[in-house]
């Protein structure tokens, strides 16, 4: 075990995978010599050489398109999109190509690629460095969609994603890179140094895809969250005294529906929290699934706490970001209903 930041954990997952399997290649914008704008690939080029870790032209469709070709060849590309906000030029390659290659060719060709990208807000990144586009990918058959919330999961889930035989979209909540963040932006920054989930096992232990984690046990209400919102929900539960059970979904597709259903049937209440815009967001899918599976166990209408249906703003970041205040109000309301 070593105490790490999420950046260090992601870097170590790359290192472990590259050492174990020479088919693993890593590239993206600023990824090679410099080691990535967030430093997640620092040192890899020096250690594994320029043909296994290199800089790419600023062309996301090209980065993903070439990765699909490499995967068809037999390599395992792990590529970085510098910000999730920049992934849209690659959307056709991801949706029409990577996601469907196995199905349309009857596994004559497959596409084991990992597309990593920093996601989410809380860093004053404005509309082009703060978005949470996960629902654009959970809507696509053939993809897997993962979002860790801590260093331990980041390493284990990234290793599982690299080992996976199908394409994985791997979202890294950038506000969590250096420490957990509960939405109290006015308080001192917390680091991973003393956090139990900053303790990362050595070696190649994976965290399996498709399994949620119970972050707080409770009896009053189930909170479904992922990424940064896990810590916001924890802060809201502490502040309001509501005995919330907090599930960190970790993998959005395929989803751990059993864990969700078991918890909601126990608590009878459900609050769903995500940073992304509300309309057609992943919360809508979660709400539908809970309704279908738990309707007769629900004692109150479910509530979504999300980003507003606006572009992610700059100066108004903390009015947009679903902080502990808004989540706390939702917890109190769902208990009153």
């Amino acid at each position: 075990m070593a105490q790490m930041t999420m950046i260090e954990a992601i870097r170590e997952a790359h290192d472990v995978a590259m050492a174990a399997d020479e088919r693993v290649v890593v590239y993206g914008e600023d990824v090679g010599y410099f080691g990535g704008v967030f430093r997640c690939t620092a040192g890899l080029q020096e250690k594994y050489g320029k043909s296994r870790c290199f800089d790419a032209p600023i062309n996301e469709a090209g980065i993903v398109g070439t990765a699909i070709g490499m995967a068809a060849y037999g390599l395992k590309p792990v590529i970085e999109i510098q910000f999730a906000d920049y992934v849209y030029p690659a959307y056709d390659q991801i949706v029409s190509e990577a996601a469907r290659l196995r199905h349309r060719s009857n596994a004559d060709f497959t596409c084991p690629i990992v597309i990593r990208m920093p996601t989410g807000g809380g860093i004053f990144g404005g509309q082009t460095h703060s978005q949470s586009p996960e629902a654009l990918f959970t809507h696509v058959s053939g993809l897997k969609v993962v979002m860790p919330s801590n260093p331990r999961d980041a390493k284990g889930l990234l290793l599982a994603s690299i080992a996976d035989p199908d394409p994985v979209i791997f979202f890294e909540p950038k506000r969590l890179y250096n420490g957990p963040f509960d939405g109290h932006h006015d308080r001192p920054i917390v680091s991973w140094k003393k956090h139990p989930l900053g303790e990362v096992p050595d070696g190649d232990d994976i965290v399996p895809l498709g399994k949620a984690a119970l972050r707080r046990e409770g009896n009053d209400v189930t909170v479904l969250a992922y990424g940064t919102m896990v810590y916001v929900a924890e802060a809201a539960a502490e502040a309001t005294g509501v005995d919330a059970e907090i599930l960190d979904l970790r993998t959005l597709l395929p989803l751990d529906l059993d864990a969700i259903v078991d918890s909601v049937r126990k608590t009878g209440r459900c609050v769903i929290v995500h940073e992304a815009t509300r309309t057609s967001g992943f919360g809508a899918e979660l709400m539908s699934l809970v309704q279908e599976a738990c309707f007769y166990h629900l004692e109150a209408p479910m509530i979504r706490v999300t980003g507003w249906d606006t572009p992610y703003p700059h100066a108004q970041e903390w009015e947009y970001f679903p902080g502990p205040g808004r989540v706390g109000e939702a917890l109190k309301k769902v208990m009153e209903d």
Partner: peptide, 15 residues
């Protein structure tokens, strides 16, 4: 879409 994939496949051969 396949045009850029062919380049990736060729890069993989070189890698």
């Amino acid at each position: 879409t396949q045009f850029v994939q062919s380049v990736g496949w060729a890069m993989a051969s070189a890698i």
